[in-house]
Structure formats: C-alpha cells, structure tokens
Simulated scan of single mutants.
Amino acid sequence: MAGIGLASAYAGLRYGLPTLSERLHGLRFEPLDQPAGFRRLISNGGTSNGSFDPFIALAPTADRVRPSCRGLFEDAAPPGIVPAAYFSDYNCAYCRALGPRLEALQGVHVTLHELPLLGEGSTILARAALAANLQEAYWPFHRALMSTPRPSPEAIIPVALDLGLNPDRLRADMDAPEVAAALARSEALAALFGIYATPALVVGRTLVIGAVAAATLDRLTDQELADGPVPTCA
C-alpha cells in the first residue's frame, strides 16, 4: 500500500501539476536533428525527454538498427485529422493510461507501434499481439492485454480463447516474418527519432516522450492542425 501511495503521489506531482502550468503557458518546441521538419515538445523548462523518470522504461542501445521512417503513420490522414504514432510496451504503467486517452481523442488517427523495452516478457507479448493481427484481432488483443493486471506470457492463450482466436495458429504466427518485420520497423523508427522510453508519441510533426496530460494532447492537436500538413518523414 505504501508503494502504491508513493507512486500515486509521484504521478500527481509529475503529471498533475504540469497540467495547470501547461494551461497557463503556450506550447514550446525545439527542432529535431532528424528527421527534417520534425520537432520535440518542450515541457517545464526542459525537453519532454530531458529528465530521468523511474516509471518510464529505458531502452537498450540500438546501434545495430538502421534508422528509418518507414511506416511511421500507417495511412495518410484525411484533411482535418492529425496522424499520431504511439510507441507502447505492455509492462509500461503509463502506457495503460495513455492508450485509452489517445483512442478517445477527437481528430487524431493513431498508428500503434509495439516497442517492447522491458525485457523478454514484453517482447513475447508484443509478438503475440502482432500475431493476433494476422487473425484480424490486433486492437482487441492489445486492449485485452493492456487491461490485464501485470500481463505475462501466461495470459496470451486465455486472451486468445476469450477473443475466439485460434491459439495454435497464434503460437505459430508469433514467429512469422510479418511479426518480425513489424517489430524491426518500430525499432528503426525509435532509432531515428531518438526514442529511448515508453510511452512515446509522434503527434503530427511533434515528438513527445513520456506520459502527457489530456489538456496538452488537445492543445497539441489544435496546434498541429493550425501548422498545416505534416512533413514527409524521410
């Protein structure tokens, strides 16, 4: 209970107080070195990824990965809709809160990228979710895992059965080339943008690393619409 209380207090200080500050001050940005035309949200006097946060997953170095922008946004967003890329890990506590917030956000089309940073268990869960996509059940499977307390690989088959999926096919598809390609794509995108933690977002042309308040997401979406078409990610 003490640990839960400490985490709740920390979350209030880390993400509650900045919400009031963000309402009083305009959004600020700094350009990214790469890709050209993209930027990083600056928050509370520092960049959104400028300080260590013990509740956010830290990534291993990805020197072996060739940075690439391929697949950042899965589809071209229609006029008036902001594309957003969301990088998530099933064992990331703040990803559980941010995911539903993004789905409820008006005027945003979300492309979800599996970026398992918290060890082998996270990687297995990510592979299972991408395998579920081959049975056209990616989003239901993703939501089910995110709503499972402390998800582990042991949850994969019960979730698959609950959703009416073929568990034998799911197991086999976890090693499918399409699953490996999807994970490699997300890792290459993370290398390009310098994403070292989850949750992370690219909202339009703006990188945000770490949890973000709903009020900030609303304002950022409005700003992206006002700034016009998103640059080509190359």
Results as ranks from 00 to 15, higher is better:
E154S: 15
I195C: 05
A126Y: 02
I156H: 11
E120Q: 12
N133Q: 14
E154P: 10
S147F: 07
A128K: 00
D175G: 01
R169H: 14
P140A: 06
T123C: 02
N133P: 00
A197N: 05
A126R: 00
M174G: 07
L145S: 06
P153Y: 03
A129E: 07
Y196G: 08
R143T: 09
R169L: 14
T198H: 10
S122M: 11
P149T: 07
A144N: 06
A160Q: 05
M146C: 02
D168C: 01
E136Q: 11
W139K: 12
H142Y: 13
R143N: 03
E154Y: 11
R171A: 08
T148S: 09
G121I: 11
L165E: 14
E154Q: 15
H142L: 03
G194V: 13
A197Q: 08
L165M: 07
T123Q: 06
D168K: 07
E120S: 11
A180M: 04
S147Q: 11
Y138W: 08
N133L: 09
L189Q: 02
A197S: 15
A155C: 02
Q135G: 05
A191K: 15
V179T: 02
A197R: 09
S152F: 11
P158L: 09
L189I: 08
L189M: 05
I156Q: 10
S152Q: 15
L183S: 03
P167V: 11
R150P: 05
P151T: 06
T148I: 10
A132H: 04
A137Q: 14
P158Q: 04
